[in-house]
């Protein structure tokens, strides 16, 4: 029983990270229809920025929290610049060109990161409040992991509320389904696209800052997540925000139990799951078949 609860919890923490990294990608794809390979590099840069601000503010009591906010702000600005300079010119391009251009950006951003921050792995010390462990019998839940879990939950709910319950959300959804109507109503669609891109970068940035609590800030941190994140995205349904949340939970839990029983093929299991979904239900668990082409 204790093992079960521990694995559920650690699986959910994994899910939260999956969700934070993938949701921005899903959002951009769902509204704009562009797959941004550089999303993961932005996630990594957010971690590095958090480290930089945290180091600059050393000694200050709320240094981590300030670094978190400053990094988010910095990433939003960076996202805005990238959108204006690059992304808005490729929304209409062919799929291959889009992938290749954003893939080239991965090369550029990764190397620039290495030039700025060097190749030593870095770490951000956890704030005092997040260093403890909540123990109860054989169950132990680290505070930092609980925080990451909550962060995933709050960001997810927040974005969902924005999409489903506000006027902005209605416009965003319309930007996908009635693209031609929006300009007719006097709503500038390119500004909406900019907003969506910045929002997706913000989600990546939150993921990057959250990651600094769990592991090392490192040049390889994005590579490891890339394929798994794509799988999460596909299983949930490309472009389906709620689907991404559901599939992040499924993948996280599958993984944390698979390592107990079939440790060597835990990763393969996620691929197989993705393959099955693609063959039998390409629009994913929560997507609609209308989005297929």
């Amino acid at each position: 029983m204790e093992l079960f609860i521990n694995q559920v919890f650690s699986g959910l923490v994994r899910s939260a990270l999956y969700f934070l990294v993938t949701s921005g990608l899903t959002l951009l794809f769902g509204v704009v229809g562009t797959l941004n390979m550089a999303h993961f590099s932005l996630y990594m840069i957010a971690s590095y920025l958090t480290w930089t601000f945290h180091t600059m503010l050393r000694g200050f009591e709320f240094s981590f929290w300030s670094a978190f906010i400053l990094a988010s702000a910095g990433m939003c600005i960076l996202g805005w610049i990238i959108e204006r300079l690059v992304m808005r010119h490729i929304y209409e391009r062919e799929l291959g060109d889009q992938l290749l251009i954003t893939f080239a950006m991965v090369y550029i951003l990764d190397d620039v990161t290495k030039i700025i921050w060097g190749s030593n792995p870095l770490f951000v010390a956890r704030p005092a409040i997040l260093t403890g462990v909540i123990s109860w019998g054989g169950i132990s839940l680290p505070a930092s992991d609980i925080f990451v879990l909550l962060l995933g939950l709050v960001s997810g709910l927040g974005t969902w509320y924005l999409l489903a319950r506000t006027r902005t959300g209605r416009i965003l959804r319309a930007a996908y389904s009635h693209k031609e109507m929006l300009p007719a109503l006097g709503i500038p669609i390119h500004r909406i696209y900019t907003g969506i891109f910045v929002l997706s970068v913000l989600l990546a940035s939150i993921a990057g800052s959250a990651w600094t609590l769990m592991g090392m800030v490192d040049l390889g941190q994005a590579h490891t997540l890339l394929i798994e994140a794509f799988c999460v995205m596909v299983i949930g349904g490309m472009g389906s925000f709620v689907g991404t949340a559901v599939s992040a939970v499924i993948c996280g839990l599958t993984y944390s139990f698979a390592i107990l029983y079939v440790p060597k093929i835990a990763t393969l299991l996620i691929f197989v799951l993705t393959g099955i979904i693609l063959v039998f239900r390409p629009w994913g668990l929560m997507g609609t078949s209308g989005r297929l082409h």
Binding site: L95, V234, L278
Partner: peptide, 20 residues
């Protein structure tokens, strides 16, 4: 398995096959 899909889905299926 792959050719049943089109567009981005085909692309992702091939990535999944390659990784597997």
């Amino acid at each position: 398995l792959c050719v049943r899909l089109a567009g981005i889905y085909f692309a992702i299926m091939t990535v999944v096959v390659a990784q597997s």
